[in-house]
Computed example of a mutant assay.
Amino acid sequence: MIRSDILRDIAPVIRDQLVICNIGLPSQELHMIDDQPTNFYMLGTMGLASSIGLGLALAQEKTVISIDGDGSVLTNFGTLPTIANNVADNFILLIIDNGSYGSTGDQPTYAGRKTSLAAVATACGCETVVECAAEEVKATLEAAIASAKMTVIVAKCESGNIKVPVITKDPVSIRDRFMEAVRS
C-alpha cells in the first residue's frame, strides 16, 4: 500500500473530525478522495501540519487529526517534544512514513533508513505511540479516536504517488470554510 491507499481507507473515519493535512501530494490526494470542509489542506509551510494540529486541539474540544509525512516531521523535529509536553487528549498525529519525500520525487528520508519516528516520539515523552503497517491504519486510527488519548501513529507504507490534480480552491476559502467547520 502507498499513502493514497491509506488515505482512501481512512477517509470515512476522518470525515467527522477536524483534519490538518500535510503539504503537497497528501493534501491533493485527500482533496481528490474526499474533499470536506473539515479538512484543512496545507498549501505551504512544510513540516507544520503537526504543530498547527496541536495548537488547534489545545484551543478547542473537537478531535483533531494531523496527517503528516516522515519527511515533514523530520524537517520540524521540535514538534515531537512540543506534542509530548503539551498533552491534548483530542489530538492524533498520523505520520504516514513512506521513507521518502514523496512530493518532491521520492528521495529517501532517514526514516526510511535507521531513524525510527516511533522511537523518537517515545524518547521525546509521547505516551501513546503506535507503529503499524499500512493495512492496520484504519483500525489503529479508530482505536485512537475511541481512546480519547493523545496518540502518535506511525504508519509504515511503500513509497509511491498517484497522479492527482492540484487543489484549485483559493487558500483563503480553504481557511474560511475550515474555520466555519471548527465553529459549528
Score class of each variant (00 low, 15 high):
Met1Gly: 07
Arg3Ile: 14
Asp5Thr: 13
Ile6Met: 02
Arg8Tyr: 15
Ala11Asp: 05
Pro12Leu: 09
Val13Lys: 06
Val13Trp: 03
Val13Gly: 06
Val13Gln: 07
Gln17Thr: 04
Gln17Lys: 09
Val19Asp: 01
Ile20Glu: 05
Ile23Val: 15
Gly24Val: 05
Leu25Cys: 11
Leu25Arg: 09
Ile33Arg: 00
Asp35Trp: 07
Asp35Gln: 12
Asn39Thr: 14
Tyr41Thr: 02
Leu43Met: 12
Gly44Asp: 15
Thr45Asp: 11
Met46Arg: 00
Leu48Pro: 06
Leu48Met: 12
Ala49Thr: 14
Ser51Pro: 02
Ile52Tyr: 10
Ile52Thr: 14
Gly53Ala: 12
Leu54Glu: 09
Gly55Thr: 11
Leu56Ala: 12
Leu58Phe: 10
Ala59Ser: 14
Ala59Tyr: 13
Lys62Trp: 00
Lys62Thr: 02
Val64Glu: 07
Ile65Asp: 03
Ile67Ser: 03
Asp68Phe: 01
Ser72Gly: 06
Phe77Asp: 09
Thr79Glu: 08
Asn85Trp: 10
Asn85Gly: 14
Val87Ala: 10
Val87Tyr: 04
Ala88Trp: 04
Phe91Tyr: 07
Phe91Ala: 00
Phe91His: 00
Leu94Pro: 03
Leu94Gln: 03
Ile96Glu: 01
Ile96Trp: 00
Asn98Trp: 03
Thr104Glu: 04
Asp106Met: 10
Gln107Leu: 12
Ala111His: 11
Ala111Asn: 11
Gly112Val: 13
Ser116Leu: 06
Leu117Tyr: 05
Ala121Gly: 11
Ala121Pro: 08
Ala123Pro: 04
Ala123Val: 05
Ala123Gln: 08
Cys124Ile: 04
Gly125Ile: 10
Val129Leu: 06
Val129Ala: 05
Glu131Gln: 11
Ala133Trp: 09
Glu135Tyr: 07
Val137Leu: 04
Val137Tyr: 08
Val137Trp: 03
Lys138Leu: 07
Lys138Pro: 07
Lys138Ile: 05
Lys138Arg: 14
Ala143Asn: 12
Ala144Glu: 04
Ala146Phe: 09
Ala148Gly: 09
Met150Phe: 05
Ile153Asn: 01
Ala155Met: 06
Glu158Arg: 15
Ser159Lys: 12
Val164Asn: 13
Val166Cys: 13
Ile167Arg: 04
Ile167Phe: 02
Thr168Tyr: 10
Arg175Ile: 14
Arg175Asn: 10
Asp176Gln: 13
Met179Ile: 09
Glu180Met: 03
Glu180Ile: 07
Arg183Met: 11
Ser184Asn: 09
